[in-house]
Every structure is written in C-alpha cells, then in structure tokens.
C-alpha cells in the first residue's frame, strides 16, 4: 500500500499545481458569499435557505473537482506516456488504481472540508452554530466523495476524459433519483420487468443515502449510529467493487 500512497501524493501534487481547483474554489466562495449576503424582503437571519444553497454549491463543486481530477488520471498518464517509466517500477496495477483513487478522494475531501469551514464561519456570522447532524452530514458526504471518486477512476480505465466526466456527472445527478424512479415504476409493471428493475436498484449505488442535507437544513435530530455504520459499510462495499472493476479492466489493458 506504500506504493499506492506514493501515487496518491503525486495526484495531490499535480492537482495543487493545476488552476482548475483554484477557479472552482473562487467560484464557490463567491457563490456562497452572494447567498450569505442576499437579502429577501428585509428579512434577517435566514439560516435554512443559506444552509440549503451552500450545501448544494459545496456538493456540486466538490463533485466537479472529484470528476475533473479523477477522469483525467489514467487517460492523461497514457497520452503523456508518463505511465511507462512508472509501471516499469515495482508497482502493481492494483496499487496504481488505488493510489489514483486515494489521491482523487483526498484532494476532493480537502477541498470539501475547506468549503465546509467557510460555510461554518458564515453560519456563525449569521448567529447559528454546528449541530450533531451537520457533523454526521459532513461525514456521509466524505463517503460520497470517496464513492464518486471510485466510480470516476473505474471509468477512467476505459473511457476518455470527456466521456467519463459526462457519465459521472450524469450518474451523480441520477444517483439521487434511482430509488424513487424504480420504486414508482415497480407499481405499474409486470413480474419480469419488476425483477429487472429491482436488480438495477440493488446493483447501482444510491447516492441519496449519503445526503443528510434536508435533515440538516430543517434541524432534525441526529441519525441513529446504526444507520451511519450501515451507510459506511454500503460505501465501502461499492468503493471496493468499483476499484476491483477498475483494477481488472486496467490489468487487462495493453499499455
């Protein structure tokens, strides 16, 4: 795993040197500031609206960072031929994939935590504070970033940059609706179609399980610990599956 960590550090170093993260950072801070400063009908202390929109901005910007950083990892290594000296070293292909995922996840999580820090500062300035459910929400979101990074890295082993980014973002949007869409469809379909739909429901990861934003916004009580643990196991299972698929695909790849 030491080799994977070396690859991860390289991903982080590369990402820090690229402009896109800084552009996205400025964009998100600007958007959050606009949301914080916006005034509606001379009302003051609007926390829920600010929390909801800030969470939305942070979620999307972080996912864009994960997708932008993750999607280019394997194709760029191949196109720029940097992969050849690297793979001639004592580095397993699985370590390469895990390293790429780890690096993508860490840089995205770091950005997410910075955004959350800014959000919390703004929240304090509005007279609110940190709640237990907010911490749970941040934790689940970190799991979601790791899951999305694993999907992006898996796809980057056989897709081009643009195709990967499109599919990943599309899945990120649809991943929230899979459960509901399938559940609705199940009520009006035959046994065979129902079997197929339910299989899809089990196979595809539900990204909405990592989203506590509504409970945070509407100041609900914290979620029971068993739920957080189950979601954590759920994330670990899917991350392992995607990394395994990515590794198998990359192992079969002729460089």
């Amino acid at each position: 795993m030491r080799a994977a960590w070396i690859i991860a550090k390289n991903v982080i170093e590369e990402s820090i040197r690229k402009k896109e993260i800084y552009v996205l950072f400025i964009l998100s801070v600007a958007m959050m500031s606009v949301v914080a400063m916006a005034s509606f009908f001379s009302l003051t202390g609007l926390i829920k609206y600010f929390t909801e929109l800030s969470f939305l901005i942070i979620t999307y910007i972080t996912v864009i960072i994960a997708v932008v950083v993750g999607a280019r990892q394997v194709p760029t290594e191949l196109n720029s031929r940097t992969i050849y000296p690297l793979m001639a070293k004592p580095l397993k292909r699985s370590e390469f994939i895990i390293g790429k995922w780890l690096g993508t996840s860490l840089i995205s999580i770091f950005c997410f935590l910075v955004f959350e820090g800014i959000f919390i500062v703004l929240l304090f300035s509005k007279g609110s504070g940190i709640s237990c459910i907010l911490i749970q929400g941040i934790f689940l979101h970190i799991l979601q970033i790791m899951l999305i990074s694993s999907i992006v890295i898996c796809l980057s082993t056989f897709m081009t940059n643009a195709a990967n980014a499109t599919v990943s973002i599309l899945y990120f949007i649809l991943g929230y609706w899979i459960g509901k869409a399938i559940s609705d469809a199940l009520d009006n379909c035959g046994a065979f179609l129902a079997w197929i739909l339910r299989s899809i429901n089990y196979i595809l990861p539900h990204l909405d399980y990592f989203d506590l934003s509504k409970k945070i916004v509407h100041q609900w009580q914290p979620v029971p610990a068993w739920v957080i643990i189950t979601v954590m196991i759920y994330a670990v299972v899917y991350i392992s599956i995607f990394l395994l698929i990515g590794t198998l695909k990359f192992q079969r790849k002729q460089l």
Binding site: R2, A3, I6, K9, N10, E13, E14, R17, S80, R81, T82, Y84, P85, L86, A88, K89, P90, L91
Partner: peptide, 22 residues
C-alpha cells in the same frame, strides 16, 4: 522508454525521489 515524458510539474529531484520510494 523511447520517448521519455515525466511529470512536467515536478523537478528531477522530486521525480527521482518518487521513483526511488517505489
């Protein structure tokens, strides 16, 4: 390799450190 490309943002020292650690 025939055409050697290395991470353009790194210095020779950092590249060799990375490979050495591998």
């Amino acid at each position: 390799p025939e055409i050697a490309y290395y991470y353009p943002f790194l210095t020779p020292f950092k590249i060799l450190t990375m490979y050495g650690k591998l």
